[in-house]
Design a protein around this nucleic acid. Structure first.
Lengths: 194, 194
DNA sequence: CGTCTATTTGAATGTACTCAAAAGCGGTGG
DNA sequence: CCACCGCTTTTGAGTACATTCAAATAGACG
C-alpha cells in the first residue's frame, strides 16, 4: 500500500501543513496497489480520480478510432496524473490510465478534492504551484512537437527522463513522441551508429 | 488604457472579491497599451511580467537558432500569457511575446504576483483554476500534435478559434500548427476544393 | 519448449519541407 | 490617385522525413 509519508513530503515541498491538516489530507485519500498493465481509468467513462503515484509508473493515453494509442504522459513517483477535464466536468474521459509497472497510488475523488481544498485552503497554493509547473512542462513539450524532428524529440526525452527508458516498452515511448514504433527503432539504429 | 472591470469580472467568474481585495489587485497591476507588432517580452531576458489581455491579441513564440518562429500560444481578451518558467525562476526566457494587433494589457511583476497571493489568498484558488484549465487545453494540443495530421490540426484550430483567423496572419497560424506557411497554404487550397 | 508480443529490417508510399519564383495586398510617397 | 515597395501568400518541382505493410528476429512468460 502506498505510503502517506511520500505524498506528505511532496506536498510539504511547497506548503507546510499542521498535523490536523495532514490528517484531513490522509483521511480523504484512498490508497491502492496496481499490477503492471492494470487499468485505473477508462476512456469513455467520467474520470473518477485524481491520482498521485508514490511508486512505479502510470501512463495516460488516448486511443484513436483506428485503435492506435497515443501517450499524453507518463507519471512516475511523486507525480499527479489523471484527466482533469473529465474529472471536473463529469464528462466522459478521452484518456485511459494504465500501470506500466507494479504501482502504488493515492486516489482522490472529485468530492474529496473539493472537500480537501475547502478544509485545507493552503492546498490551493500547492495545486496552483503543481499545475503551474506542469504547464511549463507541457509548454516545452508543445514547442518540441511543433519544432523538433522525431530524432530531436527522442534525444530530449532521453535527457529529461533517463530512467524511464529502462522499463517503459519502446512502443509507448514512440507513442509519447508521436512516431510509429518502427520509426523509433530506425532512429535508435541511427543513433547507435554514432 | 486597459479597463480594470474586465480583469475583475474574469477573476470573479471563479472567486468573489471584497472591495478592498479588488483594490489590492488593482494597485498591483500596471496598465499598458501596445501597438500592433510591439514586443512586450523578449527571449533571452528574464520574463518580467505575467500578462493579462483585455483587448486585442498577443502571441508568445520561440525563435529557433535558424530564425524560425514557433508560436506557443495566442492570447486574446481575458487570457493570461507569459513565460511562467522564466518568470518564477528569473532565468532567461526562451519565448518572446508580441502584439499581433493593437492591444490593451495588465502587467503583473513577480513581486506583484507574490504580494498579491499573500495579501489576497483567495487568488491562489483563482490561479489554481486558471492553470488547471490551461493544463487541460495544453494536453489537448499535445494530443493533436502527436496524433493528428496538419490538416486535422488546422480544422481543429478553426473550430476552436473561429475568430482568430480573421486577423492573425496565416504564417503565424502555420507556425502555431507546426507546419510551414507554404504547406498551410496548400492545405487551405485542398479544403477549399471541397 | 511453444506462444505471444515487442522490436527490427526493408521496400514502397505519403506527408510535409525546401527552394525558387510568381502573384496578391497594403501602405507610403510622389 | 496611382505607382512602387516590402511583405505575405500561392504555386510548383524536387527532396527529406515519417508511415504503412510485410516479414524476420528477438524476448518474455507460462
Amino acid at each position: 500500500m502506498a505510503d502517506f509519508k511520500s505524498i506528505l513530503s511532496a506536498v510539504e515541498k511547497h506548503v507546510r501543513l499542521t498535523d490536523s491538516e495532514a490528517a484531513v489530507l490522509h483521511s480523504l485519500l484512498e490508497s491502492r496497489s496496481l499490477r503492471a498493465n492494470e487499468l485505473i481509468a477508462n476512456a469513455g467513462e467520467p474520470s473518477q480520480h485524481f491520482i498521485f503515484v508514490t511508486m512505479g509508473c502510470l501512463m495516460t493515453y488516448h486511443t484513436s478510432t483506428e485503435g492506435v494509442e497515443h501517450v499524453l504522459q507518463f507519471a512516475t513517483a511523486n507525480w499527479w496524473t489523471g484527466d482533469l477535464g473529465s474529472f471536473e466536468k463529469h464528462t466522459p474521459s478521452c484518456y485511459s490510465t494504465r500501470a506500466i509497472a507494479d504501482t502504488e497510488v493515492f486516489l482522490l475523488t472529485l468530492k474529496g478534492f473539493e472537500e480537501l481544498l475547502e478544509r485545507v485552503p493552503k492546498l490551493e497554493k500547492y495545486f496552483r504551484i503543481i499545475f503551474q509547473n506542469s504547464l511549463i512542462t507541457h509548454g516545452g513539450r508543445i514547442m518540441q512537437a511543433i519544432s523538433y524532428t522525431a530524432e530531436e524529440r527522442y534525444e530530449a526525452f532521453r535527457e529529461k527522463y533517463p530512467t524511464l527508458e529502462q522499463f517503459v516498452p519502446q512502443k509507448y515511448i514512440a507513442s509519447y513522441l508521436g512516431v510509429t514504433p518502427e520509426f523509433l527503432s530506425k532512429i535508435r539504429r541511427r543513433l547507435m551508429a554514432k
